[in-house]
Design a protein around this nucleic acid. Structure first.
Length: 206
DNA sequence: AAGTGGCACAACCGCTCGGTA
DNA sequence: TTACCGAGCGGTTGTGCCACT
């Protein structure tokens, strides 16, 4: 059995107080992100390093864009989820100002249901037209089609080794995509911080 | 006004991965 | 080569808020 990531005794759990937040912000402003394990003690926090990292990454980071997801962001998430599966950090990497946790939560609470209502299996992005959603799909599937199939014209092919396996038996085209993932850091330098997806059509049997 | 059920999101837990000694 | 350690990731849980009855 491994040792716990940090000594659990004498550490706070649960919601962060304003004072704790401020200590963490002050420390990181001063010293930057670094060794999370030793950070809590150095910053005078009774938290484990993991907890500090999570708090910073998901909530305190100054570049976070808080608030509702836009329609373009929704589309992008759907698209990326179809390509990458539950790789939230990768997906979040394409959405400037969004965190993996945020994207994951949004997926689980909004998009999953939305796709289900459209008769689309949110796990594999395939049509499941076996029930009454069939007709509603016709009317509601617009945004999904827009999201997943907007790239369909050039039918991108994913050339990644980390693509979730898919079978090929459904009505949705196989999303064989070559997705060039840019570094998140470079994202920030993009004008306006708009997400950049580089779909490359790799010749393939489609 | 009080109770309750659902939703949204913050936070935790356990696992994996990559670096290093 | 292998074991250890820190960091990161994804799944899950906890909790506060809000709408509805």
């Amino acid at each position: 059995m491994r040792k716990p990531c940090c000594e659990k005794k004498d550490t706070n759990k649960g919601a962060w107080s304003k004072q704790e937040d401020q200590k963490l912000i002050d420390y990181i402003k001063k010293h930057g992100e670094g060794c999370w394990r030793s950070l809590p003690e150095a910053a005078g926090l009774l938290r484990c390093g993991k907890s500090c990292r999570l708090r910073w990454v998901n909530y305190l980071r100054p570049d976070l864009k808080r608030g509702n997801f836009g329609e373009d962001e929704e589309d992008l998430i759907i698209k990326l989820h179809a390509l990458l599966g539950n790789r939230w950090s990768l997906i979040a990497g394409r959405l400037p100002g969004r965190t993996d946790n945020e994207v994951k939560n949004y997926w689980n609470t909004h998009l999953k249901r939305k796709l289900a209502q459209m008769g689309i299996d949110p796990n594999n992005h395939r049509l499941g037209l076996t029930h009454s959603s069939k007709s509603s799909f016709v009317s509601n599937s617009h945004s999904y089609n827009k999201a997943v199939n907007s790239e369909a014209d050039n039918f991108p092919v994913l050339n990644s080794t980390s693509v979730p396996e898919r079978n090929t038996s459904c009505s949705l085209p196989d999303l064989n995509l070559d997705l060039t993932i840019g570094l998140p850091e470079s994202m920030g330098k993009n004008s306006g911080g708009s997400p950049v997806l580089n779909f490359v059509h790799v010749a393939g049997e489609l």
